[in-house]
Design a protein around this nucleic acid. Structure first.
Length: 739
DNA sequence: TTGCCAGGGACCCCC
DNA sequence: TCCCTGGCAA
């Protein structure tokens, strides 16, 4: 039976729902319900058969978002009793690009079975090219940029920092060069007589390009550029796509870059039905990708319609007031004039009573506070204490704890664990996700020292034995300690006097693990990647974990190729190294598929960036100091590279200068200040994103020192960021009134 | 403006 | 350890 559900659209949503054709820009404030309106509009157009014989295309940036859209549109169509599930397609912008290229790979001189290099493969290959460069005479040039240092310890620290920084620099530069249509060949020709940093890049760029081609791979930048060129070169193909997609919707388009915009424009040329939805105030990827909110701003000006969704039902009126206050301060009072347009001056409005499908939460008192502590440790401890209290009082409310860096996540997690609170850590090195890598490492650790009873016990207890009976388990392990590993592995343990029920889960899983360990121990260790896959078969894994192990085996095979003499011990050290960047990429690639949504009563720990798109009832914002949220270019913040000679500190600006010179023949802007301004602007928006995650409660805080030691030495003292100071004035007034 | 000297900071990196 | 900065004198 068909169920009729009449949705009560808000007044800022009605003009959007009335859209029928043409270009439409929808700037939307946080919590305005972008996904809601896009899914409903798509369903409405399908219901009215506006797509005729074509389809509606919805473009997202993340696989998780694409899956989310698919599910929601399907559900609405089902509710409406419409069967036209073939009328729409949801995909990421990169899948679209791949699809375009697949239609005619020969246009770009690609073979039909080209593949896409994901972040993991790209990291590996680029690292490889950099190593080749250094090994084949580039080492001096590589080290030339480092500050002189006679102390070996400091020199090593610098070198390590530069290894990371250099990778980022090369990666960004190559991307930048590609978007400026500078091929490795033309760069090489241009840098022949030149000495600058581009000369080094040129070598690595050539090498990287060669390897991509050898392996039939395209990286994400190539994907977009080739897709655009393919469409430009073939009108028939262009028409095919234009007729296939009568409507195009683009989500999160503040994160769009120029080439993406161009591809979309070409596809929409004929029917001219394009809807782009986004929020320039939530653009937080510009400093590390080619995205720029200016493209959406331009679209807002030139589109046939531009309807602003300025109402938010997510947060309480108090939180919206605070967010609006930040916007006001930034736009009008910021001392660094160039940063005043970091945020667009949009006032977020509450949903009027009786309007819309959902109203703003209304907590009974003012639930915002700003706090300052002596150390970060204090910050974390107080937060967890606070969380514990909230949890007891409101067991069904969700809680989010946000920190600037992934490296700080574990500190928060540790204290949460101590307090026995259940939580989810969203980060590349979260224990859950790393667990599988750690488990394999533990097994290999045992293989290396099969006589070590402790290694055996760790492997058994952490990887295989499953039981809820913690005391029984530790008793059991203590009994095992009385034997040698050989006795445990090769003689039947039942003969030994064990005080244990042979039918309980603990014993059964122990036995299974034991058998597997014997098998693994007897497996050859000459091919380590195969050994890892062999271990994989003996672990009880989810699909995602399996693909993670496949990646791991792939990585190990690669390591062996690169360093044929590498030992199992050395590989083990690499596995245990939680700072290894390759694992982070691996984990990101595997886990990106499923989005994360905080459930009622859950606690989430993540960084400010990851929080985008999420919401919690209660939010804690940590580390709101000047270092992380600067307000002028004279402050110290992450931008200059301390380990480089003064002249080369701002490597990014250096590269921008040189590329500008190459493309335009002259330097058109002051990139040294520009890179700094960009960072400040993005940090402001990052704070805005953080604040607008909260529905009811928002606690903002920071601390003067990182830890006790620094506090004693009075080193690296931090002040509250100017935004916290300013917002605190409002908070104080409000709290005063509340009493 | 220049030169000298003492003392403190450099290690935290988002996708 | 080295480099930068700020204070000070010339």
């Amino acid at each position: 039976m068909r169920i009729l559900t009449k949705i009560n659209y808000r007044k800022d949503q009605i003009p959007i729902m009335n859209y029928e054709c043409g270009t439409m820009a929808v700037p939307a404030v946080p919590g305005a319900g972008k996904t809601f309106i896009v899914t409903n509009l798509v369903a409405k157009l399908l219901e009215e058969n506006k797509n005729e014989k074509g389809k509606i295309l919805i473009l997202t940036y993340m696989n998780s978002a694409a899956n989310n859209f698919k599910g929601r549109i399907k559900k609405i169509l089902e509710e409406k009793g419409i069967e036209s599930t073939n009328g729409f397609e949801v995909m990421t912008i990169h899948s679209l690009a791949a699809k375009i290229i697949k239609e005619k790979p020969e246009a770009m001189m690609l073979s039909e079975d080209f593949n896409i290099a994901d972040d993991f493969q790209k990291t590996m290959m680029l690292n490889d090219c950099i190593n080749t460069f250094r090994a084949s005479g580039g080492e001096t040039a590589f080290r030339f940029f480092l500050k002189e240092q006679k102390n070996q310890m400091w020199y090593d620290i610098q070198l390590e920092a530069w290894e990371n920084g250099f990778f980022e620099l090369v990666s960004k530069s190559i991307s930048n060069l590609k978007y400026n249509d500078i091929s490795p060949q033309s760069l090489e020709a241009n840098t022949l007589s030149n000495k600058g940093i581009l000369k080094i890049i040129s070598f690595i760029y050539t090498e990287y390009d060669k390897r991509l081609k050898q392996n039939g791979l395209l990286d994400y930048d190539d994907l977009l550029i080739y897709a655009y060129k393919t469409l430009c070169s073939d009108d028939k193909l262009k028409e095919k796509f234009q007729n296939r997609y009568r409507y195009v919707f683009e989500d999160e388009c503040q994160d769009s870059n120029e080439i993406q915009g161009k591809i979309i424009k070409l596809i929409c040329e004929e029917h001219n039905n394009l809807v782009r939805v986004g929020d320039v105030n939530q653009s937080i990827t510009g400093t590390f990708s080619s995205s720029d909110p200016k493209f959406f701003k331009e679209f807002m000006k030139e589109a046939d319609y531009c309807y602003e969704m300025n109402m938010s039902n997510r947060s309480s009126a108090d939180i919206l007031e605070l967010a609006n206050n930040l916007v006001q301060f930034v736009c009008n009072d910021l001392v660094q004039i160039e940063c005043r347009d970091a945020l667009q001056e949009i006032e977020i409005k509450t949903v009027e009573k009786g309007q819309g499908y959902k109203e703003n939460p209304e907590p009974d008192k003012y639930q915002i506070n700003a706090l300052w502590y002596r150390t970060f440790e204090d910050e974390v401890n107080k937060t967890v204490k606070f969380v514990k209290g909230l949890k007891a009082k409101y067991p069904n409310k969700s809680i989010g704890i946000l920190v600037p860096y992934n490296s700080q996540l574990s500190q928060v997690s540790k204290v949460l664990e101590q307090e026995r609170l259940e939580f989810e850590e969203l980060g590349p090195n979260s224990k859950n996700k790393r667990k599988i890598i750690d488990n394999i490492a533990k097994i290999i650790d045992f293989i290396l020292e099969p006589d070590d009873i402790e290694k055996l016990i760790i492997a058994l207890s952490d990887v295989f034995i499953k039981t809820d009976n913690k005391e029984g388990k530790s008793d059991f392990l203590n009994i095992l300690r009385q034997y040698t590993t050989e006795e445990i592995l090769y003689s039947d343990i039942k003969d030994k006097p064990l005080i244990i029920d042979y039918k309980c889960d603990m014993y059964i899983t122990f036995k299974v693990g034991l058998n597997y360990l014997v098998e693994i121990l007897e497996h050859s260790t000459t091919k380590i990647d195969e050994l890892i896959l062999f271990i994989k078969e003996r672990l009880d894994l989810k699909d995602e974990e399996k693909s993670l192990v496949d990646y791991l085996a792939f990585y190990v095979r690669y390591l062996i190729n690169e360093m044929p003499n590498i030992t199992l011990r050395e590989i083990l050290d690499i596995l245990y190294d939680s700072r290894n960047k390759v694992f982070n990429y691996m984990i990101d690639v595997v886990y990106e598929i499923n989005g994360y949504e905080p459930e009622p009563g859950s606690i989430t720990v993540c960084n400010y960036h990851k929080s985008k798109g999420m919401e919690w009832d209660q939010v804690f914002l940590l580390q709101l100091n000047k270092f992380h949220f600067p307000d002028n270019i004279n402050q110290k913040f992450q931008c200059d590279k301390w380990y480089l000679k003064d002249k080369y500190k701002n490597t990014e600006a250096l590269i921008d200068n040189q590329i500008d010179l190459l493309v335009n023949g002259k330097i058109t802007q002051n990139y040294y200040t520009k890179t700094k301004i960009d960072v400040i602007n993005e940090k402001i928006r990052l704070l805005y994103v953080g604040i607008t995650r909260a529905k009811e409660t928002l606690i903002m805080m920071g601390s003067s020192y990182q830890n006790e030691e620094e506090s004693k030495n009075k080193k690296k003292m931090q002040e509250p960021c100017i935004y916290l100071t300013r917002l605190n004035q409002l908070i104080k007034n409000k709290r005063g009134m509340d009493k």
